[in-house]
Simulated scan of single mutants.
Amino acid sequence: MDRSYTKVLVSIQQEDIFMVMTNLEGLAFDPASTPEIYLRFAEKKCGLPTGKAYTTPEALLLVELCGYDCDRPKLTYQLKKKFFKSPEKDETGKAYFWKRENVLDLIRSLESMRAWLPIHGFHCHKMRSDELQKGQDSIANQAAFVAELATRPSRELLSMLVTTLQEGNRKLIALVLHDRLGHLDDHLQRN
C-alpha cells in the first residue's frame, strides 16, 4: 500500500492545527471555549464571514473542518432527537438558518457523542487506544482506496462519482478528480 496518501492526509491536519495556534489572536485557552476556537478556525479556513446565518451545507462544512463526523442523516437524527436546540427555519419553513450559536450547539452535541473524524488532530488526544487504532485503520483504507482510484481513467471516476451512494467515497473520488483536473488547469494556463 502506498503510504504517501496517508502522509498527505496527516500533514494537512498538522498544518490546520498550526494555523489554529498561530492565527487566532485574543482567545485564552479554556476547555469550555474549545468549540469557539474550532469554529473560528473553520470560518477562517473556508472564508465564511462570522456573524451571518449559514446554510445547512455551510454548517456541515464548518463542523467537518472542526473535526467532527456529521452528515445530513446524522444531523437529521440529532435534530429529531432534540440533542440541541434547532436553528430557525426560513420563511418557506424548509431550510434552516444556522447562527453561530446553533453551529456551536451542534459541535457541543457531537463532542458529547465523541463523533470525531478519524485521526483528526483536534481530537486525537481525547481518543482511547481502540479509537485511535480504528481511526488509523480507516485512514489506511481511505489511502488504499484513493491509490486505487488514481489508477482508474477519468471517465470511470466520473461515472463512479455520479452513481456511488456513499458520501465518503464520493468525497474521495472528487478529491482524485480535482487533483487530475487541477493539473490539467495548470497545464492549460501555461499554454
Rank of each mutant, 00 (worst) to 15 (best):
F83Q: 04
L75D: 00
S138C: 14
L177R: 08
I119Y: 05
G51R: 06
E156T: 05
E88V: 09
E15T: 03
L158S: 09
K45N: 08
D90P: 03
K134S: 14
E101M: 10
L181V: 12
Q14G: 05
L9V: 07
T34K: 12
P153D: 14
G47A: 04
R40F: 01
K171L: 15
K85D: 11
L175T: 06
A28G: 10
L79Q: 05
Y96N: 09
T22F: 10
M1T: 07
G67E: 04
F122R: 07
F97S: 05
R3K: 10
E131Q: 14
L132S: 06
A32C: 10
L184S: 10
L149C: 01
I173S: 04
L117C: 02
V146C: 04
L188W: 14
L161N: 04
T164E: 15
K7S: 04
Q13G: 15
E131D: 12
R40P: 03
S138A: 14
E43N: 04
K82V: 12
G51Q: 06
R170E: 09
E36G: 00
G47T: 02
L172T: 01
D30Y: 07
K94G: 02
Q133T: 11
P31E: 08
T6Q: 13
P118M: 05
T151M: 14
P57F: 13
T6D: 08
G67D: 09
M19H: 13
M113L: 14
P31L: 10
C124I: 14
V162A: 11
I107H: 00
R128C: 03
G168C: 07
K81N: 13
I107P: 01
K74L: 05
Q189H: 13
E101I: 09
G121M: 07
L161H: 12
Y38T: 02
K85W: 08
G26D: 13
T92C: 02
L157K: 02
S138F: 08
A140R: 11
I173P: 00
V20I: 08
K82E: 13
L117E: 07
E15A: 06
G121L: 11
V20R: 12
D69C: 03
H123C: 01
M19G: 10
L165G: 12
N102G: 15
S109N: 01
F18Y: 13
A140W: 04
C46Y: 07
T50R: 12
Q14T: 08
V146S: 02
L9N: 06
K134G: 06
W98H: 03
T22A: 14
A174T: 12
Q14V: 13
A32P: 01
G168H: 09
K99A: 15
M127F: 11
K74A: 01
K171M: 09
F41M: 07
E36F: 00
V20M: 15
L62C: 03
H187L: 09
L157Y: 02
C70G: 00
L161Y: 14
V20E: 06
I173M: 13
K85C: 07
G47M: 02
I173V: 15
V8P: 00
E148D: 11
Q166E: 15
R152F: 09
V103N: 00
A32N: 09
G93C: 02
M19N: 11
L65P: 03
P118K: 12
